[in-house]
Design a protein around this nucleic acid. Structure first.
Lengths: 358, 358
DNA sequence: TGCAATAGCTAGACCGGTTTAGTAAGACAG
DNA sequence: CTGTCTTACTAAACCGGTCTAGCTATTGCA
């Protein structure tokens, strides 16, 4: 005999299908004695629910969807995604909810997948990443009516729940720190310009620069790849009055930049300070280890998963959620600039200014 | 009205449910004229199949499963997994097959997920990673009867299709190269000892060492983490007669080891050569860039996905598949050892022996 | 004692597809 | 003109659950 169905259990236990369903789902409608008997028979026969049959009745599918619109090859490179995935998994696994993952070419394809998975009842909700400036996905998700959690925000009006870390505050803290130890020419290797968080960081840098009266604060957009990170760094360092500090929007680019500096004979942190907007093993294991913004992406993933499950469960007034503002972890890739003098503030204690060569 | 069903289409087109089903699935049983009309109505009403209803009838679920039994936090760290995922996605997306991903604590939990997903008809097949020495999962998968592709092998008897790269050959090529440029004391930071590929590499090193008459060839097992990689490197480098070359089973460990060497004032490659068994951006962007075994993990992922889809489609005699033996990409982290002289063979041309400090 | 409420259960509709058995009409051979 | 075969289609069963309406026996209460 193939897999046992509730009809088999019903027959064996001498009750009806309905009674079995009630018993297995902890619903009233059967006596405790009968329930126990049914559960035991189900156990004996090693019964498992058939998810399709359940879903057909309109129940949960116990899966959530994550669709990423980036070239497949780059996903593997970005520690951010892998860590986010890890965090998501940690919570989802604990609730026996599976993750439906799909990587697509562009936003149009992404929207198509949202439509398909929704109408196919494949998932109970979506996780949306890479929030864009005027994001066409939000309207679609709203129309589809499935729960969703958006990474990035905050949002203005209604729409799905959003979770974000304060990119602006974070960028300000970096610039404040660099200015405090004497930097006046700061460059910023930004990410893809149509992402919201990229814009927010660029604006924060510009504002801080004006407030602090910096000599220069340039944001250069890139595609997040190590190649563009390296190329842009090379360009910046070749200029006559080159920046004394560069802030990188991702750790991959920061490490690539560090490599270029080495190649060009520019000492880090002696002649160039490097800050990464993203902290991961990568930032810790290179030499010198990079001063980086410690965003706990794993925790972010956990939070996103928790929130999505809550929204799916209709659990309460969970409104937009802000993650703790990331803190700057000062390591050995930053120090006061060669010629400059700290602007009245001591350099942060943890800076190891000895530029020991590798 | 909610989502249209085939009954709605049938009503609108003036035919029966059955006719609609035939038409939509390209099956004989309707005339071309009727088929065209039905397709048009379906298009107009924006109809999509309900995957649960299909699955209930025993059809495909158009999803495959990947269950990984490692601590969730480490997945994000390992470029191997992210690249594998990328490769899988590239092929799966093209076939509109989704990936069901789950990270669990241990092999027992992994097996439980296999059982559950199978009985729930959630997936059409599985991808199995981290093949173990006497792997309990193979028997379970065989019993479940669902198609599977195992990463690692080759297998002895029957069982699921296996795909593997020749770890032995690869390790031999590394040791041969190191011996050729004069190294006599080689250490190996291995991975988890109960994985098959770990054992294969350890054995290959021992064999090569015996054949080449090396002075020392030590394999140290680790858990693949950067922490253990660093710790083991520290231990090795503190010994009186330390190795002149270390082979790392993963790039994360190799980079961590590179960091330790820098910290301890051991010049790379001047006093210590470093080889990584895994190539990724990581190996390329650190300084000096690491000599590494270029396994195209992305391509491996693609191949695994292709094979699994083929097995699911019952497509032919696809037997165990060997990926091209990875080639050693010599970069700047290897050179002849300080005191040693090349054993009769010229050092490979591409080695840049100038040990330019960062 | 009589009637309503309730606990405990059954029968069967239902979800949205697929698939099989059956039917009506037309084509063709003898 | 009859009998058989094929084509194009319909009606209904089926997959494995959930859920509602309804039935029966017991309990509660006046």
């Amino acid at each position: 005999m193939g897999r046992p169905t509730i009809a088999d259990i019903a027959r064996r236990a001498g009750v009806s299908k309905g009674a079995v369903s009630f018993a297995l789902n902890g619903r009233p409608g059967v006596s405790e004695a009968t329930r126990a008997r049914i559960l035991q028979v189900a156990e004996e026969m090693n019964w498992r629910p058939h998810s399709a049959a359940r879903a057909l009745g309109g129940a949960r599918s116990d899966a959530v969807g994550l669709v990423i619109a980036r070239p497949a090859r780059t996903i593997g490179v970005e520690p951010f995604f892998s860590q986010l995935l890890s965090g998501l998994q940690a919570v989802l696994s604990a609730h026996s909810v599976a993750l439906h993952l799909m990587v697509v070419e562009d936003t149009a394809a992404e929207i198509e997948v949202y439509r398909r998975w929704t109408s196919e009842h494949r998932v109970d909700g979506f996780i949306v990443v890479d929030l864009q400036l005027r994001d066409p996905r939000l309207a679609v998700l709203d129309a589809l009516g499935l729960p969703a959690v958006v990474l990035g925000g905050p949002g203005k009006g209604a729409g799905p729940l959003r979770i974000w870390a304060d990119d602006r505050e974070a960028m300000l803290s970096i610039v404040d720190y660099l200015a405090a130890i004497g930097h006046r020419r700061i460059a910023h290797l930004a990410g893809l310009p149509h992402f919201q968080h990229t814009q927010r960081r660029i604006r924060a840098l510009r504002d801080a620069s004006r407030r602090l009266g910096l000599e220069e604060a340039l944001s250069v957009p890139t595609d997040f790849s190590d190649a563009e990170g390296a190329a842009a760094t090379r360009t910046l360092l070749s200029r006559p009055r080159r920046p004394t500090a560069i802030v990188y929007d991702s750790d991959v680019m920061a490490v690539a930049g560090l490599g270029v500096a080495g190649e060009m004979g520019v000492a880090v942190p002696g002649e160039l300070s490097i800050v990464s907007f993203d902290d991961s093993v990568l930032a810790r294991i290179v030499h010198p280890p990079l001063t980086a913004l410690s965003r706990d992406t794993f925790a972010l993933g956990e939070q996103v998963a928790r929130s999505l499950l809550a929204v799916i469960d209709d659990a309460g007034p969970d409104r937009d959620l802000q993650m703790p503002t990331p803190r700057l972890t000062v390591r050995e890739s930053t120090s006061p600039p060669a010629g400059g003098s700290p602007a009245g503030v001591n350099s942060t204690g943890t800076v190891d200014s000895a530029s020991e060569p590798v």
